[in-house]
């Protein structure tokens, strides 16, 4: 009897712990939403989402359009994925299928260390190393642009993509591979035609999580992309992302003004974007587990 009560109490304790996370999440969402609503009311949804001009401290005409910021954010996020996906998946395939166990024992922790490098350090490298290199290579006047940000974000999302893809590829049943090899396929054919397609949903989930990491990244893009507010026209444009805008402007904005609420509204849009990305990866992951 006593033991039952104690077990119930412990169970309740753990339940409360997990509830805390949900309460915090709901709280954050509530604060974002309640502070964003005045912005939508004062600015209007139309201007907020369709205007590309953001200038809350303007000399002549105050405007709150976040279109160019959404485009900028998506541009460097997808740009980052173009670099990170092939590299990440290839590395994961190598690690789980080809690499010698000894090599893997060294490589895997090293890749995970990459995840631990502070974003401000990566941003700094973007300014002093990658920027000048891009400028020289493409004969530009400077290298503070979308390409710089995309490459840095690719580096930052690589550990997530590699580590989760590797898990997915390792989880492919050995019988699939054996069957393929027995039918006379080479190791390469087996890898490309059998193993990777079988692990595809896990790999896609890994990519989505890496993408969620890239969308929300702030310091690196703030330092390396130049922060020009214009709508970007090419990968060599200097641009300002949604995260950078919030980080730069929230420090000095007077509270409870339209500008203040508008920054929360950007935060809300960003939250919804990362939420969708995470949701999609979750759905894909679930599908993959069902197949198992």
């Amino acid at each position: 009897m006593r033991r039952e009560i104690r077990e119930k109490a412990i169970e309740l304790f753990f339940l409360l712990n997990s509830l805390v996370v949900i309460i915090v999440l709901i709280g954050i969402f509530y604060i974002l939403l309640s502070n964003s609503i005045p912005a939508f009311r004062e600015i209007g949804l139309n201007e907020f989402f369709t205007s590309a001009r953001w200038n809350p401290t303007s000399f002549s005409k105050i405007e709150y359009g976040i279109l160019s910021k959404i485009v900028s954010t998506l541009m460097i996020t997808f740009g980052a994925m173009i670099f990170a996906v092939p590299l990440g998946v290839a590395t994961a395939a190598y690690l789980s299928e080809i690499a010698d166990p000894k090599v893997r024992q060294i490589l895997k922790p090293v890749i995970e260390i990459l995840a631990g490098i502070p974003s401000v350090v990566i941003g700094f490298l973007g300014i002093v190393l990658l920027g000048p290199y891009i400028a020289r290579t493409f004969n530009l006047s400077n290298g503070l642009n979308a390409l710089n940000g995309a490459i840095l974000l690719a580096i930052m999302s690589l550990p997530t993509i590699i580590s989760l893809s590797e898990d997915a590829i390792s989880a492919v049943p050995k019988s699939y591979k054996n069957a393929s090899l027995a039918l006379g396929a080479s190791r390469w054919q087996t890898l490309v035609k059998v193993t990777i397609p079988s692990a595809l949903s896990g790999i896609i989930a890994a990519i989505m999580l890496g993408m969620g990491r890239a969308i929300g990244e702030t310091m690196t893009v703030l330092m390396a992309t130049g922060n020009a507010p214009r709508m970007p026209s090419s990968i060599f444009s200097s641009l300002q992302t949604m995260t950078a805008t919030i980080a730069i402007e929230l420090g000095e904005v007077p509270h409870h003004t339209t500008h203040y609420y508008a920054l929360f509204a950007i935060g809300l849009v960003l939250f919804v974007m990362t939420f969708i990305v995470n949701l999609v990866s979750d759905i894909i992951l679930h599908k993959y587990q069902e197949v198992e």
Partner: peptide, 22 residues
Amino acid sequence: DYSEDKMRMNGNAQIVEGVLND
């Protein structure tokens, strides 16, 4: 208003760094 192409740097030192390289 400043041109929309003006890059917004994080400090005086970063501006100097940018001009030195550009």
